[in-house]
Design a protein around this nucleic acid. Structure first.
Length: 732
DNA sequence: ATCACCCGGGG
DNA sequence: GTGTACGGGTGAT
């Protein structure tokens, strides 16, 4: 049969493939695939290991092969250990590593996923069009841009829960099941049977949920179990979920909570809430990445772009007969692009000139890092290579770079080209594919410096930084030579001021010099904001109005996830007034109107007219309740929830209203939204203060502190409206 | 005054 | 399958 490879996964000791075409879908089992890992050591040690392993019944075969231990190194003799039981692979690798005191043996290809092993071995990939008749025949090309995608049917499932209070629990029964436009109501057990029957009947390829991993799917199974429905499942055959708990983990200093995956068999479950890549690039973005990264779509939808880029790198290394290192122990720690630049503030960070500016353009090297990596051939095996010691080309660093093209550029260049091709085309399909690739490129940089990255090396980071810094400095010099004034600059962007309107010349000159694509956008005006504490320009706090009337806001409350709606609405409405201005002069005229907006909001808060929903803070829990040292709003919320037997994992969010900010009593200080009743009294003074501070955030460069705004707003007489007296009150 | 805690960014 | 920046603001002590 011919069809598209919808999904594949290991099951016990075989690989299951689901192949879809216009006539239906077929499950294919390959029970003749056995995974391997590799061991390198002295020949003598390998020989003794070989004889030791030959007694192990789970070892299927032991062979010697010639492989590269690292990119472009000469091939070495290694022992290939093939296991007959999938589960034994990692156990065996661990045993060997331990028996050699974690130093005698170097192990490779240990932590590769089974789908990746299988697709590399068979030279196929997810969503490939192929023919299966005893053996697999690829009728597709992984490099293809205009590949066909199967028609996929889908359904979205939501449930409503008959909860005792507003916190839904597993013990609460289902009240409603909604499947697209089908609404099921009635007795719970019947509902579940009907749900299963409808899914069997419609037989969708994709099931979309909102929170399926975290709640919906496990809940449905819990209820089915409670109703003694033992053949309840949602896949194309019985689902088996790993008994895993979700994990909380740190990223960029923030705690995230990752619920366990609920993947279905033969059907694709996409949890829209748990899929960054789906949110960013849609179904076609997922398919695009699934193909090129060889990660099955259900797994891919739940991973980060960094995982996908790693997988692509592994595939490339595999093709070049290079083994994949198991663990790495480089001392440097993971840092994101921005971190590194922040960490050593080079000459290309310009503290913003606080205040409002006209005639401003922002230039932006949108894919600076991947471009640098490709252009300057930056890769772990090219930076400080042994063969080209003389080529010390890195600006300001004593590093040499190889003349032979490295793995990272080889991987990135085709992706950049693909993306450029998609960018040229119209329509949602290409937009989604383009977005998916964008994220691959953006994250590729961070991963080169992450210590556990398969193909990472800190010197790559330093090298990329050195080039990046040089490029920004160069761009600045060119701009200044054309009489542009630099107002602000950070990482890959510069804000420039000039009376001349011909910015094309600037772009051309920079591009001619640097040969890295850049974008340019003109502002009618932009306001750079100071730190609230010291009046110095803050690197990432600004707002501005583009020539096309789009508004760009960074760093202030409206951008924060924890801000209550009322703060967001206030700043949105104040900005609405301010952005009516087409220039600096008009901007100053709009300031009093923005303050009037603030007055309206303040009045509403003062009069107790706010809906509770507007006042809700949504804050992320960073640790377990007992680990907190201070009695914060979050702690008070957690205590309230604990009374109701609800425990949140670090990384999950609480929603609360401030009822008495200064109170030391957890029941009094805040109210968790789900536990609040409609007549809950909120802390008016506190919310008023928040409003004033949010107003200050926008207007501080013009002399309005929260305190001063407070004074203004207390004016009750209608004709003493604040008179803005020109430049006297302006700090800058 | 100092420490604890939470958030951003990218597009 | 995986990661603890750094500076900003606000609140607690």
């Amino acid at each position: 049969m011919k069809g598209w490879l919808l999904d594949l996964y290991p099951n016990e000791n075989e690989i299951v493939l689901w192949v879809k075409n216009d006539h239906g879908i077929k499950k294919v089992i390959d029970s003749d695939f056995f995974p391997s890992f590799y061991v390198y050591s002295s020949l003598q040690d390998l020989k003794s290991l070989e004889s030791k392993l030959s007694d192990d019944t789970s070892v299927k075969s032991l062979d010697y092969e010639k492989k590269r231990l690292w990119l472009r190194e000469k091939e070495s003799l290694v022992l290939k250990v093939t296991v007959s039981k999938y589960k034994r692979l990692k156990e065996l690798a661990n045993n060997i590593d331990e028996s050699g005191n974690f130093s005698k043996y170097q192990l490779f290809n240990v932590d590769l996923s089974f789908p990746l092993r299988y697709t590399l071995y068979k030279e196929i990939f997810p969503f490939a069009f192929l023919e299966i008749n005893g053996k697999i025949n690829l009728l597709d090309d992984i490099n293809s841009i205009d590949y066909d995608v199967p028609e996929l049917s889908s359904i979205r499932i939501d449930v409503e829960i008959n909860a005792r209070d507003r916190i839904p629990r597993y013990e609460d029964p289902i009240s409603k099941i909604i499947m697209d436009d089908i609404v099921l109501e009635g007795e719970e057990k019947e509902l579940l049977i009907e749900l299963k029957e409808i899914i069997e009947h419609l037989d969708p390829d994709i099931i979309y949920t909102n929170g399926g991993d975290k709640y919906l799917i496990p809940y449905l199974f819990y209820r089915a179990n409670y109703s003694k429905l033992d053949d309840f499942f949602l896949g194309r055959e019985e689902d088996s979920f790993p008994q895993k708990k979700g994990r909380s983990y740190f990223t960029y200093g923030q705690v995230k909570y990752k619920p366990p995956m609920y993947t279905l068999k033969g059907r694709i479950h996409i949890d829209m809430m748990n899929s960054f890549l789906y949110q960013e690039s849609g179904l076609f973005g997922l398919i695009e990445l699934s193909r090129i990264s060889r990660i099955p779509i259900q797994i891919l939808s739940r991973t980060t772009p960094g995982t996908a880029i790693t997988s692509i790198q592994i595939s490339r290394a595999f093709k070049e007969n290079t083994l994949i290192p198991w663990k790495k122990n480089l001392p440097e720690q993971f840092k994101s692009a921005k971190d590194l630049f922040m960490a050593d503030r080079g000459g290309f960070i310009y503290e913003p000139v606080v205040g409002i500016h006209e005639n401003v353009v922002e230039i932006d090297f949108s894919s600076l890092y991947p471009s640098i990596m490709v252009k300057y051939n930056i890769s772990p095996e090219t930076v400080l290579c042994n063969c080209c010691r003389e080529r010390k080309v890195v600006p300001g660093l004593n590093y040499n770079i190889c003349k032979n093209i490295g793995l990272i550029p080889k991987v990135l260049e085709p992706i950049i080209e693909r993306r450029m091709e998609y960018k040229k085309r119209e329509g949602d399909l290409y937009k989604q594919k383009n977005n998916a690739l964008k994220w691959i490129l953006v994250t590729s940089f961070g991963y080169t410096g992450y210590k556990n990255a398969k193909f990472g090396k800190i010197e790559c980071h330093e090298t990329i930084n050195a080039y990046g810094r040089e490029i920004l400095v160069r761009a600045k010099e060119i701009a200044e030579s054309l009489d542009y004034e630099v107002l602000h600059g950070i990482v890959d962007s510069l804000w420039l001021k000039s009376n001349c309107n011909d910015h094309e010349k600037l772009c051309n000159m920079i591009y001619e010099d640097i040969k890295i694509p850049l974008g340019i956008e003109a502002y009618k005006w932009i306001v750079f904001l100071p730190n609230k504490s010291n009046e110095i320009g803050a690197l990432n706090r600004y707002y501005g109005l583009f020539e096309n009337d789009d508004v760009k806001v960074r760093g202030i409350e409206i951008r924060r996830r924890d801000s209550p709606e009322i703060i967001n609405n206030l700043q949105r409405d104040m900005l609405k007034e301010l952005t009516k201005a087409n220039n600096k002069k008009e901007f100053y005229r709009q300031i009093p109107k923005a303050i009037e907006v603030l007055r309206d909001y303040a009045r509403k808060v003062k009069n107790g007219e706010c809906d509770l929903e507007e006042l809700v803070f949504t804050s992320t829990i960073s640790k377990k309740i007992e680990e907190y040292e201070q009695f914060t709003f979050n702690v008070a919320s957690l205590l309230q929830l604990r009374d109701k037997d609800v425990v949140l994992n670090p990384g999950e969010r609480v929603r609360y209203i401030i009822t008495n900010s200064n109170s030391k009593k957890y029941l009094d200080k805040v109210k968790v939204l789900e536990l609040a009743d409609e007549n809950e009294k909120y802390d008016k003074k506190k919310y008023l203060l928040y409003l004033l501070k949010a107003g200050e955030s926008l207007l501080l460069p013009f002399g309005y502190t929260a305190k001063r705004l407070d004074e203004e707003l207390k004016l009750t007489s209608q004709n003493t409206l604040y008179r803005y007296s020109s430049k006297k009150n302006v700090i800058f």
